[in-house]
C-alpha cells in the first residue's frame, strides 16, 4: 500500500474519531437533559422528553441521517455534512443515554433523598450534591457500551459520502482491488479503536467509583494477576 493510500486512511480515521468524540459529547448533553426532564415535576417537560426518547429510539439512525442530508435542504436548511452526521448520531445515542440517566437516578436509594431533605437541602441542591454524583457512578458502565455502539454507528456516515474510515477504506479497496484484506483491515482497525475506548471507559469507571468512596470492580489485568480465590 502506497503512502498516499495510507494518508487517506489516516484522514478517515480522524473523521471517525471526530464523529465519535463530538457525537458522544453532544449525545451526553442530550442524555442528561432528556433523562432529567423525564423525571421533571412538570407534565409538558416530561411529555416532551418522552417523545424525544421514544421517537429517536424507534427511528433508525441511518434514516435520520438521510433525512438531515437529503430532505432537510428541501425545507431550506442545509447543514455541513460532518455536522449532520454528528447531530444524527448524537440524537440517536442521546435517546438511549437518557434511559440510562433516568434509570441510574431512580436507582439511588430513597434514604439518600430523605437524608438530603432532612438537611434542608433545596430540590436543586439535593440533585446536584447528593443524587446525581451517586447516579453518575452507575451511569458510567452503560455509557461505555453506548460509546462502542456510537463508534460502530459512525460507519453509517460513509453511505452519505462523509469521508470517514469506512468511506476511505472503500477508496482503498477500489484502488488496490484487494477486497478481503481491505475490509478485514478496516474491521481490525475498528476493533482496536473500540479496545482503546473500552480501556478509557474502564479508567473513568474506576475514577468514578473511588470518587464516591466505593471499591472499583477489579479490572481484567488485576483479576488475572490476583491469586485465585479459594472455591467455596
Amino acid at each position: 500500500m502506497s503512502a498516499g493510500l495510507l494518508r487517506h486512511l489516516l484522514d478517515g480515521l480522524l473523521v471517525t474519531l471526530q464523529l465519535t468524540i463530538f457525537g458522544g459529547a453532544l449525545g451526553l448533553v442530550f442524555a442528561v437533559v432528556a433523562g432529567l426532564a423525564r423525571l421533571s415535576r412538570s407534565r409538558p417537560v416530561r411529555a416532551l422528553a418522552f417523545v424525544y426518547t421514544e421517537g429517536f429510539r424507534g427511528l433508525p439512525a441511518l434514516v435520520v441521517l438521510f433525512w438531515f442530508v437529503f430532505a432537510l435542504p428541501r425545507l431550506g436548511f442545509q447543514m455541513l455534512p460532518l455536522f449532520a452526521g454528528v447531530l444524527a448520531l448524537a440524537l440517536n445515542i442521546g435517546a438511549y443515554g437518557a434511559e440510562v440517566v433516568r434509570g441510574a437516578i431512580r436507582a439511588v436509594p430513597n434514604s439518600q433523598l430523605e437524608a438530603a431533605t432532612a438537611l434542608n437541602f433545596t430540590r436543586w441542591q439535593r440533585m446536584r450534591l447528593v443524587v446525581f454524583p451517586q447516579a453518575l457512578v452507575a451511569m458510567v458502565p452503560p455509557f461505555g457500551n453506548l460509546l462502542i455502539e456510537l463508534l460502530k454507528a459512525t460507519a453509517l456516515v460513509s453511505i452519505v459520502y462523509i469521508p470517514d474510515l469506512t468511506f476511505q477504506g472503500q477508496l482503498v479497496r477500489a484502488a488496490t482491488g484487494n477486497t478481503a484484506m481491505t475490509f478485514f483491515g478496516l474491521l481490525l482497525g475498528y476493533a482496536v479503536i473500540a479496545l482503546a475506548f473500552t480501556g478509557f471507559m474502564r479508567w473513568v469507571e474506576r475514577r468514578a467509583a473511588t470518587s464516591v468512596g466505593r471499591q472499583p470492580e477489579p479490572g481484567l489485568v488485576t483479576r488475572m494477576i490476583r491469586r485465585r480465590e479459594v472455591a467455596a
Binding site: L151, K152, T154, A155, T166, Y190, A194, T198
Partner: peptide
C-alpha cells in the same frame, strides 16, 4: 465491537 456495515461489505 466492529460496525455491522463493514461486516456487510
Amino acid at each position: 465491537s466492529t460496525p455491522l456495515l463493514v461486516q456487510l461489505f
